[in-house]
Design a protein around this nucleic acid. Structure first.
Length: 291
DNA sequence: ACCGCACCCTGAGCGC
DNA sequence: TGCGCTCAGGGTGCGG
C-alpha cells in the first residue's frame, strides 16, 4: 500500500502524537511474520520509554527512543499507523460505524489485525499499528546496531538526482521500472509513483535502464519528485485501503495519469492506457506519450 | 551479477 | 449465497 508519500504523510501526522509521551502499556498480537523482534521483547522494552523523534528512510519509519534504541516500522502493503480519533472510523464498515455511540466512535476498537497498541502514562490518544496482510515489519534496533533492512537502502527518492541514477544504471539491462523499484538504488519508489514518474518523463517502463540518456534520467527524477511532492501535499493516494492517520482519504489518486487507468483515455493525448506485467507487477503506460 | 519467479497473508470484487 | 478465480501500493530468497 504505502509508498514514500503515504509513509511521509503518516510520519508528519503521527510524530507529534508520539514525541515525549511515556509509554505505559504495550499490547501486541502473537508472534508472526510481521514481528522481526518477538512481541514479548517489544512489550518489555518499550514500556517506560518515550519516542524522541520519528524519522523516515525510504518506506521505513524509524522511531528514535529516549534510550537510544530505534523501532523500525514498515507498513508493507496494508499497514496503517494511526491514533484514537477520526482515523478509527474509516477502518470500519458503514453498518458497524452506525451502531457505535459517539464515545465509541472516538476510540478505536482493536481487532485481530491490530498488531501493536501503545498506551501512554498521561492518558490521551492511543497509537495503533494495524496490518491486514501482515507484510509489514516491526523491528527493535540497538543504538548502533547494524540492520540488513535499513543499511542497504539507496538515496531517498526525494533527494536523488539524475546524475546518480544515470551513473548507477550503466550496463544494467533491467527494465527502467524494475530499476526504480529496487530500494537499494533509490529508496521510496513503489508501483504507483514509478508508473506516474515514467509517464511524466515520457519513458516506457520496459526501456532498459542502461540505455537511458542523462536527460531522460533527469526527466524521470523530475517525474518521481513531482508526483511525490503532489501526493504528500494532497495527503497521499487512497486507491484501495490507504487511510491517512487523521482518517481522511488521500486525494492524490485523482491526479493519477496512468496507474490503474487501464483502458481509460490518456489525459494528454486520448490514447488508451495499457497494462502489462513487468517483474511480477502491473505496469501502466500511455503507448503514445511514452516511448 | 542478474533475472524471473514463488512465496509470505488476507480481503475485495467478479463471473457463474 | 456461495464458490473459485484474479487482483492488490510491500519485500525476500531461490534457482537458472
Amino acid at each position: 500500500m504505502p509508498e514514500l508519500p503515504e509513509v511521509e504523510v503518516t510520519r508528519r501526522r503521527i510524530e507529534p502524537l508520539l514525541v515525549g509521551r511515556r509509554i505505559s502499556r504495550v499490547r501486541t498480537t502473537g508472534a508472526s511474520y510481521l514481528f522481526l523482534t518477538p512481541p514479548r521483547t517489544l512489550q518489555r522494552t518499550l514500556r517506560g520509554r518515550s519516542v524522541s523523534q520519528l524519522g523516515r528512510r525510504g518506506k521505513y519509519l524509524i522511531a528514535h527512543l529516549d534510550d537510544g534504541r530505534r523501532l523500525l516500522v514498515h507498513l508493507g502493503m496494508t499497514g496503517q499507523l494511526f491514533a484514537d480519533g477520526a482515523a478509527s472510523l474509516r477502518l470500519l464498515s458503514a453498518t458497524a460505524r452506525a451502531s457505535l455511540s459517539p464515545e465509541e466512535q472516538r476510540a478505536f476498537q482493536p481487532d485481530r489485525h491490530t498488531h501493536l497498541q501503545l498506551e501512554f502514562a498521561a492518558g490521551g490518544p492511543r497509537v495503533f499499528l494495524r496490518d491486514v496482510r501482515k507484510f509489514g515489519k516491526v523491528k527493535l534496533l540497538g543504538a548502533d546496531e547494524a540492520c540488513d533492512r535499513i543499511d542497504p537502502l539507496g538515496v531517498d527518492a526525494l533527494e536523488v538526482d539524475g546524475a546518480h541514477l544515470h551513473a548507477a544504471s550503466r550496463g544494467r539491462k533491467v527494465a527502467v521500472k524494475s530499476f526504480l523499484l529496487d530500494q537499494r538504488i533509490v529508496a521510496g519508489v513503489g508501483n504507483i509513483y514509478a508508473d506516474e514518474a515514467l509517464f511524466h518523463a515520457g519513458v516506457r517502463p520496459t526501456r532498459r535502464a542502461g540505455r537511458l540518456s542523462r536527460a531522460s534520467w533527469d526527466a524521470v527524477v523530475a517525474g518521481v519528485q513531482h508526483s511525490m511532492r503532489r501526493a504528500i501535499a494532497t495527503g497521499g493516494s487512497s486507491i484501495s485501503d490507504y487511510v491517512a492517520p487523521d482518517g481522511s482519504d488521500g486525494r492524490y489518486q485523482d491526479e493519477r495519469r496512468v496507474y490503474a487507468r487501464t483502458g481509460e483515455p490518456c489525459r494528454s493525448c486520448g490514447a488508451v492506457i495499457r497494462r502489462r506485467v513487468l517483474g511480477q507487477r502491473a505496469a501502466h503506460y500511455c503507448p503514445r506519450c511514452q516511448s
